[in-house]
């Protein structure tokens, strides 16, 4: 019995992947366009990447975006991990499901509403908008993503490992840093990376909460595109796509390697059981 690909399968595959990736492929191709006109192919060139390095406005925006993403992801990771610990560990307490609902609500809340409410808050407390307000806003919505990721890691955690540490003379806070944190670290790092990525590409919330002097890269790209797309924008986007792709591939290779190594170790251990 042969179960090779049928015409239907191949067609589905081609159509599906084209739908997903054709726009990105076009964007990458046109970033190497010689011509100034985005839609007309004028030969291969990397000159737009060179001119990108001269474009201080874009570079400034990129620098702001990276700073915002780094700081907000870090703070969100601390708070999100704490929230996950409380939700998994505290057992039942009054209002537990209320709190877990509150943590996850921002995941499904429309960004426009979140952005608007934050803007109103900053206006109400008369806070000048800029770098710090964008950073705070990003922390707010990234935190719940971190909580979800860390929580999934904590659910499978054997509580008696912490008890063992305390039993051996380690106070609770030290136990958290010596035992719990290293074990849940993959979840915490994944949470941080998710928060970082979310902050990098956020346009809506940043637009609501930013002020003069703190334009993020997505905002810059958006405003430039309204004036007309230049191949420089294509180049910036290509770099972003490349960064994200490399990151995702690296992460999956590391995970896969660990898994293979682990399986090999377990087989080895099984062999010398009676020694």
């Amino acid at each position: 019995m042969t179960r090779g690909p049928t015409w239907f399968n191949i067609t589905s595959l081609v159509v599906g992947f084209s739908f997903l990736y054709l726009p990105i492929v076009l964007l990458v191709i046109y970033s190497f366009n010689e011509s100034r006109l985005v839609t007309v192919w004028g030969g291969f060139s990397t000159k737009w990447y060179a001119s990108l390095l001269q474009n201080e406005q874009l570079l400034d925006a990129a620098w702001v975006t990276l700073r915002v993403a780094f700081v907000s992801a870090s703070i969100a990771t601390v708070f999100g991990t704490m929230a996950a610990l409380v939700l998994v560990r505290s057992g039942r307490f009054l209002g537990r499901s209320f709190f877990s609902g509150m943590i996850f609500a921002p995941l499904v809340m429309p960004e426009v509403i979140l952005g608007l409410s934050l803007l109103l808050l900053f206006v109400a407390i008369d806070q000048t908008r800029g770098f710090w307000t964008v950073m705070l806003a990003h922390t707010t919505f990234a935190m719940c993503y971190v909580a979800v990721v860390v929580q999934s890691r904590l659910v499978g955690f054997d509580k008696s490992i912490e008890e063992a540490a305390e039993d051996l003379g380690c106070p609770p806070v030290k136990t958290f840093f010596l035992i719990t944190l290293p074990i849940i670290l993959p979840g915490v790092i994944a949470g941080w990376m998710l928060a970082f990525t979310l902050s990098l590409d956020d346009l809506v919330i940043a637009s609501f909460t930013t002020g003069p002097g703190a334009t993020t890269l997505p905002m810059k790209i958006y405003s430039q595109v309204r004036l007309g797309v230049t191949p420089e924008i294509n180049a910036v986007c290509t770099i972003l796509v490349a960064l994200v792709t490399v990151g995702v591939i690296a992460a999956s290779i590391v995970t896969k390697r660990q898994q293979v190594q682990r399986e090999r170790d377990e087989r080895a251990a099984f062999g010398n059981d009676m020694t």
């Binding site: 490992i161 008890e163 063992a164």
Partner: peptide, 8 residues
């Protein structure tokens, strides 16, 4: 401990 609770 019953589960041994070794630090992985």
């Amino acid at each position: 401990f019953q589960s041994y609770a070794l630090f992985p």
